[in-house]
């Protein structure tokens, strides 16, 4: 998810500390805590599968792009950076397929794009 989960958790921790102090208006404290709880729920939902989904997607993209996905570093930040590199290349490949009128290549890219949204789909997704 973007922004990345660790940076959001850090800010939520600071927010909770501020709201633990006296003097915060009740309505603002309630609003801050409610939103924090909703974000923590989403972070909890994606936590376990985050690395697995990124590895699967990077492998799928590497095959589609005839690229070599880097898998030496399994930290989420590294996997996300590799994912961004590959998805940037996917855009270039999609443009090229459209320009060439390559329907099969175009269909394969769309299939991967649909699959990418399935990997990222949240339980509360509106679509």
């Amino acid at each position: 998810m973007t922004p990345d989960v660790p940076s959001v958790l850090y800010e939520l921790a600071q927010l909770l500390l501020r709201n633990a102090q006296p003097g915060v208006p009740d309505a603002e404290r309630a609003n801050a805590l409610t939103l924090s709880a909703m974000l923590l729920s989403l972070a909890a939902e994606v936590w376990d599968g985050a690395a697995e989904n990124l590895v699967q997607e990077n492998r799928a993209l590497a095959v589609l792009l005839d690229d070599a996905a880097a898998e030496g570093d399994l930290r989420l930040t590294a996997l996300r950076a590799e994912n961004a590199r590959l998805r940037g290349r996917l855009i270039e490949a999609h443009v090229a397929a459209e320009a060439a009128g390559d329907a099969a290549r175009d269909a394969a890219i769309w299939a991967e794009l649909v699959a990418s949204t399935e990997r990222r789909k949240l339980s509360i997704s509106l679509v």
Partner: peptide, 12 residues
């Protein structure tokens, strides 16, 4: 953060 987390993929 909430709109981005909740809606980026749903919007896709």
């Amino acid at each position: 953060v909430y709109p981005a987390w909740w809606l980026l993929n749903a919007q896709d």
